[in-house]
Amino acid sequence: MKGSTIVFYLLALLTLVCGILSVSTRQIFRAAIYLLFTLIGIAGIYFWLDYQFIAAVQIVVYVGGIVVLIIFSIFLTQQTGERLPRQKPGRKIFSALAVFCGFAFTMLQVFQHEFTGTLEEGAQPSVQNIGKLMLGTQNGGYALPFELVSMLLLAALVGCIVIAIKNKEEAK
């Protein structure tokens, strides 16, 4: 077994074990921390694949952003120290079923897909290439979706300001 295979299995083990723990633990703060390790494991797999940009973005967005937000909302809403009540068996079975269906669907797709090998060299996942593709307008450029997403974000920003803004008359 090659060294890199061992590293892959270690990362996969970290991701899977922490993923299972994050749904099975009864302390909500611990669940968030296990989720964090799951996401770090996925970032590790991206690093292992040499997709460094995606890995770094994974860490910035999910680890540094989303998980911190989740932890913050837990701090602000839940009584974090207490254990959550046990779930009803019906719910457990239903969620297990849902997970199994999703898993089966993904696996079906993977196994049915025919992977064709190629002799051409893969595109370098360097930042320059990613940037050019992301903002390119010709063959396979993603300029339009990129701008659409930025419009969405702008709308979200404006919405936040509208919600947060102080109405002077109301304040009086």
Binding site: L36, Q52, A56, V63, G64
Partner: peptide, 25 residues
């Protein structure tokens, strides 16, 4: 690595997790 500065700014945001963990636990 190709993304040096991005890597640094990405990882330095993970520091906050350890602080949140320490503070809560």
């Amino acid at each position: 690595l190709n993304i040096g500065i991005l890597y640094v700014s990405a990882l330095s945001s993970v520091t906050v997790i350890s602080i949140l963990m320490a503070g809560w636990s």
